[in-house]
């Protein structure tokens, strides 16, 4: 199916990785840094033209805990654009709690890999447009494997055939993350996204690798995606606008402190990205 001629609408989506109520960022989904308070960033992005906000609790699915709820409630109060939540969602009750806390959609990886029947159950109860599947794949020796628990566990399944199974079960949307590219800011892995986005008739979002506006333009033009998800590119600029939270830091705090003192450059923002994409004749919302 080629929707290019029909002028696809492209959603611009910042992703916020969450750990213990804080916004963090890592590389290849690992090696985490605390950047700030998620709702401050989310509200700023929303006012700056984001079409949707994604929260991903990177440790929830590892420890099986789900303490995102309070944060989701707090954030939903500040937002009037869609909020999608992922990480650690294991059953229908978890989904319901997220939606009741103010989430509009959920995205799920591990729980779907563990039990494919869960997809259809969730779709029947909440409607397909509420249920997205997150596919995090890793390339090893020229073969692609899907992974769970933030790229830690490798599953012997390739992303394309896994997508097919998810689509057959009625999932409403696919989020494709290349673990190899995530956090490096060196561009997206286009090949898999191209195949998946052209093959299926549901929305597909690409995540992992955006280092500049041209990377984003490239993946839109070379695939049939409906949205782009990115984080580092934005967060490392936006961090200059807010105070670093007072907590016990681990990792390279000097780097963050230095960054935090620099002047915010409004050229690296969603607003500017949208202007850029609009100038390339893409169908982008810019009446925010």
């Amino acid at each position: 199916m080629n929707l290019k001629k029909k002028k696809r609408f492209i959603r611009i989506i910042p992703r916020l990785d969450i750990k213990n109520q804080f916004l963090i960022k890592g590389i290849n989904l690992e090696g985490l840094r605390v950047l700030g308070k998620p709702y401050e960033f989310a509200k700023f992005y929303s006012e700056n033209g984001a079409d949707e906000i994604h929260y991903s609790d990177s440790v929830a699915s590892l420890y099986g805990t789900n303490n995102l709820r309070e944060l989701v409630k707090k954030t939903a109060k500040h937002l009037n654009i869609p909020l999608s939540i992922g990480g650690g969602i294991r059953n229908l009750n978890d989904i319901e709690q997220m939606l009741n806390s103010g989430a509009d959609k959920v995205f799920i990886n591990s729980a779907f890999v563990n039990n494919l029947n869960f997809v259809n159950k969730a779709v029947k109860k909440f409607g397909s447009s509420t249920i997205s599947a997150s596919i995090e794949y890793i390339k090893i020796k020229n073969r692609n494997y899907i992974t769970v628990a933030n790229g830690r566990n490798i599953i012997n399944l390739d992303p394309l055939s896994w997508s097919k199974k998810l689509v057959n079960e009625g999932v409403g949307e696919l989020i494709i993350t290349s673990v190899n590219h995530e956090g490096l800011m060196k561009g997206f892995d286009i090949d898999i996204v191209k195949k998946i986005s052209r093959k299926f008739n549901i929305p597909v979002l690409a995540h992992g690798g955006a280092g500049n506006f041209f990377d984003i333009l490239n993946i839109i033009n070379q695939t049939n995606i409906d949205g782009v998800i990115f984080s580092s590119l934005l967060h490392y600029e936006t961090i200059k606008k807010f105070r670093l939270p007072k907590i016990n830091y681990i990792g390279n705090i000097q780097y963050l402190k230095k960054l935090n003192k620099k002047k915010y450059n409004p050229k690296i923002s969603i607003k500017e990205l949208k202007k850029f994409l609009k100038s390339k004749k893409l169908n982008i919302r810019n009446d925010f």
């Binding site: 079409d51 409607g127 447009s129 549901i202 929305p203 409906d226």
Partner: peptide
């Protein structure tokens, strides 16, 4: 109809 467009329709129009 899935033949005509991606379903569900998610986005700003």
């Amino acid at each position: 109809k899935k033949k005509l467009s991606k379903v569900p329709h998610i986005g700003w129009n």
